[in-house]
């Protein structure tokens, strides 16, 4: 069964949630992937969306465009508002944060604030929203993004959401007791961090993708193991379930 880049991204991201109890998911591909996980490998998964909905029941074909669209309210387990939702995270109750990509550097720092200088930016981006809070407060964070050279830059122009900052122990030293950015899931493969330097390295490749192809789409040096594991291709069942979740392809493109 053939599949698109976005479908591959969603399927691989969903697999990361096997066995996970709770996920704080951003809208778009992360949310689609969380719903897919719920319908395949993680039936116990409680999805939390930032607008303040815990355990919303996502209706296939009617996924929300925003994290607190009223579609996230009917038959949710709880609608605590956003302050309390983030307090659940700060208290340490939320296992995985699942966020979309912006500009990302070798230490997993994310920028969604400005491209260029802060005072006179070339592009003013929307800002943090809740991204910083999800990355600061969830126990484990995964970034789900298309793999493009313009996104993977040597240094972000602004640290909106901290990964490992300047590497080593700098994240912990800044006072961030929770969490690590554990993995970057892209449509070309997965990237993980060296346990000491906390710099990104290639972890696995998706079917048919070469190391060179990943490097060509990454704006910084990317070490790779000698033998890179290859991801299992999406199964027919995964793809069919995925397509049933977003039949109008509002998020899958």
């Amino acid at each position: 069964m053939s599949y698109s880049d976005t479908e591959l991204l969603a399927v691989v991201a969903a697999r990361q949630l096997a066995g996970v109890t709770s996920v704080f998911a951003g809208v778009g591909v992360p949310l689609v992937a969380a719903v897919l996980a719920q319908k395949t490998r993680a039936p116990q998964l409680v999805i939390v969306v930032e607008g303040g909905s815990m355990g919303p029941r996502m209706v296939p074909g009617r996924l929300p465009y925003s994290t607190n669209e009223m579609r996230t309210a009917p038959r949710a387990q709880m609608l605590p508002g956003i302050t309390d939702t983030f307090l659940f995270a700060q208290r340490g109750f939320l296992d995985v944060g699942f966020v979309g990509g912006a500009q990302i550097d070798p230490y997993g720092n994310l920028n969604s604030s400005v491209i260029g200088g802060y005072e006179r930016p070339k592009v003013r981006l929307p800002g943090s929203g809740g991204a910083n809070d999800i990355i600061s407060l969830c126990r484990r964070v995964m970034v789900v993004t298309m793999h493009e050279r313009r996104r993977f830059v040597p240094k972000v122009d602004f640290v909106t959401s901290p990964g490992f900052l300047s590497g080593g122990d700098s994240r912990r030293d800044a006072g961030l007791v929770f969490g690590t950015v554990s993995r970057i899931v892209t449509h070309l493969g997965t990237l993980a961090f060296d346990p000491e330097s906390r710099r990104l390295q290639l972890e696995s490749l998706h079917p048919g993708v070469t190391v060179q192809q990943v490097r060509d789409n990454t704006g910084f040096e990317l070490p790779a193991p000698e033998h890179v594991p290859v991801t299992e291709p999406p199964s027919a069942e995964e793809l069919e379930t995925l397509r049933s979740i977003d039949p109008e392809r509002n998020f899958l493109g």
Partner: peptide, 23 residues
């Protein structure tokens, strides 16, 4: 939290978010 502080009638609230970021 900024609103919550004002709503509580205190000048600030402590948190574990935002640390290490540029803003």
């Amino acid at each position: 939290l900024g609103l919550k502080a004002a709503a509580m009638g205190v000048p600030y609230l402590p948190t574990r978010t935002l640390m290490g970021s540029d803003f």
